[in-house]
């Protein structure tokens, strides 16, 4: 698994659906296009929902790293800010 250099990390462990998506949206709002956000979650829904969230909001899923119950999801902020 390649390592991703993240500009920012948010830890949403313990939070349930839909809060990981909400926190991700808020975190990306303050970032510049092209920057990478790392989302640390243990919510099983996030693994499926965040890639969908990224696609539907014009951001890019770079990859996911799973360590036991914890998933690290790497998202690149898209250029489309509309």
């Amino acid at each position: 698994m390649p390592a991703f250099a993240a500009n920012k990390t948010i830890d949403v462990r313990g939070l349930a659906c839909p809060m990981p998506s909400v926190k991700t949206a808020l975190a990306l709002e303050g970032m510049a296009a092209g920057e990478t956000l790392e989302v640390v979650t243990d919510d099983p829904v996030s693994k499926k929902d965040l890639p969908v969230w990224a696609q539907s909001t014009g951001n890019t899923l770079l990859g996911m790293k799973e360590e036991a119950a914890v998933v690290r999801i790497y998202l690149k902020k898209g250029l489309r800010i509309d």
């Binding site: 659906c17 839909p18 998506s21 909400v22 949206a25 969230w53 909001t57």
Partner: peptide, 10 residues
């Protein structure tokens, strides 16, 4: 849940 999820999607 639906409202906040939708808002998170912009």
């Amino acid at each position: 849940v639906i409202a906040t999820a939708a808002a998170s999607m912009g």
